[in-house]
Design a protein around this nucleic acid. Sequence first.
DNA 1: GTAAACAAGTTTATATTATAAACCAAATAT
DNA 2: ATATTTGGTTTATAATATAAACTTGTTTAC
Lengths: 96, 96
Amino acid sequence: MFPKLDPLLHSELRLAVMSILAGVDSADFTFIKKQTGATAGNLSVQIDKLTSAGYITVEKGFKGKMPCTTCKITPEGRDAFSKYVEALREYLSAGN
Amino acid sequence: MFPKLDPLLHSELRLAVMSILAGVDSADFTFIKKQTGATAGNLSVQIDKLTSAGYITVEKGFKGKMPCTTCKITPEGRDAFSKYVEALREYLSAGN
DNA sequence: GTAAACAAGTTTATATTATAAACCAAATAT
DNA sequence: ATATTTGGTTTATAATATAAACTTGTTTAC
């Protein structure tokens, strides 16, 4: 009746990150930080977790001379996200 | 852009409990336990939290000679639940 | 009738998670 | 040149979820 929710996605900040990345080709650290309002430390940790899970990839480069960390959702990430959304529906259906 | 998610509801088991209670007049402990597959200990703790928050009420009685704990969603609980669902939509919209 | 197993929870201990504070290196502004 | 800002990472702490162990009473089997 209630499917297990992917614990990697069932987290406010990680979910927001995935939500952003699902809608764009790629986004860099500072952009995500601004959109989510997260602290840099927290965001860094959560991005690591998503990366370890294979849900996103991270590329480190420079924008001018400044370091720039660019994130991108992977196909597996996209898949996991849509499965999570699907699973959540079971939980939310009563709440309208 | 990403509204804060009520941390009391952003929990797999508590959300399941609320989801069940949103759809019925009342439900007792063992029923919820079966539906969710939770352990009694975990369920007991989460029900306490929902009660402290005023999201549900708990009435202790007997069914025959056996103790029986009956739970019911409150108007505030229902309201919080529907607000949570609304907030979540912001996070999920990209995931279709 | 009493010992063993079961029902319905609660309490407590542990493992996991989220989060921010402290830190670092390089770039820019003063 | 030095103070400040940018773009992060590491680490320490606080909060959370979860299950194991326990309690209280009830049925069942002997």
